[in-house]
Computed example of a mutant assay.
Amino acid sequence: MQKYKITLAYDGSSFGGWQVQPNAFTVQQALEEALTSLLARPIRVEGASRTDAGVHADMQVAHFESPVPVDHAALNALLPPALLITDLSPTDTGFHARFSAKGKIYLYRINLASLQLPFERKNRLFFPFHTSLAHIEKAIPHFIGTKNFRGFSNESHRGSAQNKPVKTLFKLGLEDEGEGRFTFLFHGDGFLYRMVRNIVGMLLEIGKGGRDIDDIEKVFCTQDRRLAATTAPAHGLTLHKVLY
């Protein structure tokens, strides 16, 4: 049995997230159905990140096992247009897409201009409000470092936020692209459920003047999700890279 590592890109607007679920077509489902059809046997795929519905990926990583060689081109031919395997290669038996990962990089794209270009509708949040990037830049350092991010997660009573809420955010960058467009870059050793989108929501509220920088520390001190801002929409978020 050979283990394979795959790198894939997808348009999240076409899927109900990564993980197989009964009432939505997902990325994992598309991959498993294509592999099962190609190899004529059930195949289980494990992904590095369980992205939500609407979240995109530039370089998601997954693995699966097969007793026979896998044709990269033939597999891509069986996938929907919104999903592409950019790399497929054999890997060692100890590799695990999720548990072998050392970190991840996410991007969140935003448009503050008064108009949104048609092709930006699926991958950039339209936020046409007066927003101070200077205020946002002052707030960013409060998130960087090793901290308990439970208050910025939507799973405060279950899952990783309950068992492993301490994460290290190595970098939170802001790239001003001009013409009202900018992108947040998050580089961390791991992320809780909706953690990136909740931080983005808080930073946008601070930039708009609806929140103070002190509110960040209140959330960290109390771990109360209710004190944080509204979760930013999924479509602005992209899983950019998984690091090993």
Rank of each mutant, 00 (worst) to 15 (best):
K104N: 11
E175W: 00
Q29I: 02
T146S: 13
Y106E: 12
I43F: 08
M202R: 00
G151Y: 00
H235Q: 12
R41G: 00
N154F: 00
P69E: 10
T26F: 08
T238R: 05
N154Q: 09
S132C: 04
S100P: 08
A40G: 03
H157I: 13
T131K: 08
T230V: 15
G210H: 15
L8S: 07
F15P: 08
V68S: 00
R194P: 00
A40F: 01
F129N: 01
Y108H: 07
K3W: 09
A82M: 07
I216P: 01
G201Y: 03
G178S: 12
T131V: 08
A234Y: 07
R226M: 11
T230R: 09
G180W: 12
V68Q: 02
N23C: 11
Q60W: 03
K147V: 06
K138R: 15
D52T: 04
A57F: 09
L185D: 00
C221A: 13
K167G: 14
T131E: 11
F149K: 04
T222S: 15
Y4D: 03
Y10W: 13
D215V: 03
P80S: 11
E32T: 07
I110T: 05
F170V: 00
G207M: 05
R44M: 11
R50K: 14
G188M: 14
G54C: 11
P128I: 03
A139I: 02
D58T: 14
I213M: 09
A73K: 15
N123I: 04
H235Y: 14
G178Y: 15
R197S: 09
V61T: 07
I6C: 07
T7Q: 06
T231F: 00
L243R: 02
L169F: 11
Y106M: 13
A24N: 07
R225E: 07
A161K: 01
T51H: 10
A232K: 09
G151S: 06
F191R: 10
H142G: 03
A9T: 15
L112K: 06
Q60I: 02
T222Y: 01
G94Y: 13
V242N: 06
H63P: 07
A40N: 12
G103L: 06
A134P: 00
T238C: 10
D58F: 07
F126L: 07
F186C: 06
V70N: 13
V166K: 08
K104A: 15
L35D: 12
